[in-house]
């Protein structure tokens, strides 16, 4: 079964690569555009020196963790961006009459490989931030950083899933839901505490992005030592469960389109 999905990916990759120059330019474009947002951050923090006691290197860790998570989430969740079309053109009917996972059939043929540009940029910035952050790196802390990225990717993936699921219920444009994904990416450039108590609570208990960024950063910088802070990214993974349940509910409300 897994082989089928790998076949999907390779077929998709092949068709995206069919126009090599266009593919390459999009990747490069993504890479460069991503830098503009990093420069924006760089100069702001340069001027003010530190944000809420976080040094420039530490803020950059936040930035790159969120960017990396976002780009991984979007790379895998590319199918969600075109989900309304999948529902509208009958592709979803085809997915449902095959004995495979609905989610994987949606995702694998639509992975957006041009996101590699964004991904590379985020890795590069992370590489710069790690030595500059003033964090005394240990094996455990490196593992925590990886966990932050992993959980962050899952949370962004879940957010893409969540906003796609709304397509089951309405045919209207749902661009306001982009605030969940693109909005969160912009917000996430700074440690989430800078937005105040209310926003931080929202990002802790409703959309757990602070659990993959702010709280573990406190642990990394040794402002907090409770293991709870180190485990918070793992707790954030739970966010996927209600999103998946909502997606299942959406399938049961699927209307299909006229033949």
């Amino acid at each position: 079964m897994m082989r089928v999905y790998l076949d999907f990916i390779s077929a998709n990759l092949k068709s995206q690569m069919q126009y090599k120059l266009s593919f390459l330019l999009t990747v490069v474009g993504q890479f460069i555009t991503a830098f503009t947002s990093w420069f924006g951050l760089y100069f702001v923090v340069q001027r003010v020196g530190a944000i809420d006691d976080f040094t420039q290197g530490q803020v950059t860790i936040c930035f790159s963790v969120i960017m990396l998570s976002f780009s991984i989430g979007e790379l895998f969740g590319g199918g969600f961006a075109v989900f309304a079309r999948i529902l509208g053109n009958g592709e979803f009917d085809r997915i449902l009459i095959r004995p495979g996972s609905v989610l994987l059939q949606v995702l694998f043929p639509h992975m957006d490989f041009t996101r590699i540009g964004l991904l590379l940029q985020a890795v590069l910035v992370l590489g710069i931030a790690i030595p500059k952050s003033g964090i005394t790196w240990t094996g455990a802390k490196a593992a925590l950083l990886c966990l932050m990225i992993l959980s962050g990717s899952v949370v962004f993936f879940a957010l893409f899933l969540l906003s796609a699921t709304f397509s089951f219920f309405t045919t209207q444009s749902l661009q306001f839901l982009d605030i969940l994904t693109y909005g969160a990416r912009s917000f996430g450039r700074y440690p989430f505490c800078v937005y105040g108590e209310t926003v931080l609570k929202f990002l802790t208990f409703v959309i757990p992005l602070a659990l993959v960024q702010y709280y573990p950063l406190l642990y990394l910088t040794e402002r907090k030592t409770s293991p709870l802070y180190a485990l918070s990214p793992a707790i954030a993974l739970l966010f996927l469960a209600p999103c998946l349940a909502f997606f299942r509910f959406g399938i049961s409300r699927y209307k299909s389109t006229g033949s």
Binding site: M1, R3, V4, F8, A11, D93, R94, I97, R98, S259
Partner: peptide, 23 residues
């Protein structure tokens, strides 16, 4: 479905069949 293709548009028929076989 007469009005809609169940096969993969861009790949040869035989390859579509192979995907179905695996699926």
């Amino acid at each position: 479905f007469g009005q809609r293709s169940q096969l993969w548009w861009d790949i040869p028929v035989a390859e579509s069949f192979r995907l179905l076989r695996d699926m």
